[in-house]
């Protein structure tokens, strides 16, 4: 689905990521860990075409990101649900419209998908908060709304950057279960997180690979976390 071949990236100075090769297989479940500032968010941005590699090649759905026009990137994003680490919303629209935004923007909102909206809202525990404006939400609520927005299009790939950073243990378990369910339905999932307890809990439910960014490269984290 998404492939990185000898990718390097730098924000201008020294290379942040170096010689990274990785293939996101359909239906797989990945965790991405690494110290703060190691480049997890950067890695995910490369995966969904928000950044272009400074060296090497990123292939998104079999197209080289470098050759994709902005429209092609936009269409690819409709198949990739992204949960941004800093959960950006349109602050003038209520939460439910924000969650439905990918539908609105794609111009193919069906009543079915809006039924999805209600279901999703209850899954992420936002029932009754739909008419609030994003600035009125707590940090955890924002993250859940961001996750719901990432899932509304029923994307093939879900890239979540710290989706459980601000929620309590119980809620994080609930969100994890949601992602595991989606993975069992065939979705490809990748979660960037610091939360080793979350990874351990996931491993009990799904066969997940854990990747680690250290020393500017991607390594397999092995079984013993």
């Amino acid at each position: 689905m998404i492939e990185l071949n000898n990718v390097a990236y730098s924000y201008g100075g020294d290379a942040l990521l170096n010689d990274i090769s990785f293939s996101l297989a359909p239906g797989s479940f990945h965790f991405l860990t690494g110290p703060s500032g190691s480049g997890k968010t950067t890695f995910l941005k490369l995966c969904y075409g928000a950044l272009l590699p400074t060296d090497g090649d990123v292939r998104i759905f079999d197209h080289s990101a470098r050759d994709m026009g902005r429209d092609a990137v936009a269409y690819a994003r409709r198949r990739i649900g992204v949960v941004h680490q800093d959960c950006k919303f349109l602050d003038h629209l209520p939460v439910n419209e924000n969650i439905a935004l990918p539908l609105t923007v794609s111009g193919q909102a069906t009543p079915d998908q809006f039924a999805n909206l209600q279901e999703l809202m209850s899954w992420v525990g936002l029932v009754g908060r739909g008419n609030a404006l994003p600035p009125e939400l707590s940090g955890g609520e924002r993250q859940r709304a961001a996750l719901a927005r990432a899932l509304i299009m029923s994307p093939d790939v879900i890239l979540a950057d710290e989706p459980t950073g601000n929620v309590d243990w119980e809620m994080s378990q609930r969100l994890l279960r949601l992602l595991v369910e989606l993975n069992k339905m065939g979705k490809t999932v990748m979660i960037a997180t610091h939360d080793l307890a979350l990874i351990r809990a996931a491993k009990a439910q799904v066969s997940a690979r854990v990747l680690r960014i250290s020393n500017h490269t991607l390594q397999s984290a092995g079984v013993d976390l």
């Binding site: 429209d71 269409y75 994003r77 919303f89 935004l101 923007v105 794609s106 299009m153």
Partner: peptide, 8 residues
Amino acid sequence: VLRLVGAT
């Protein structure tokens, strides 16, 4: 934000 959710 619009670009993030796939707006052309």
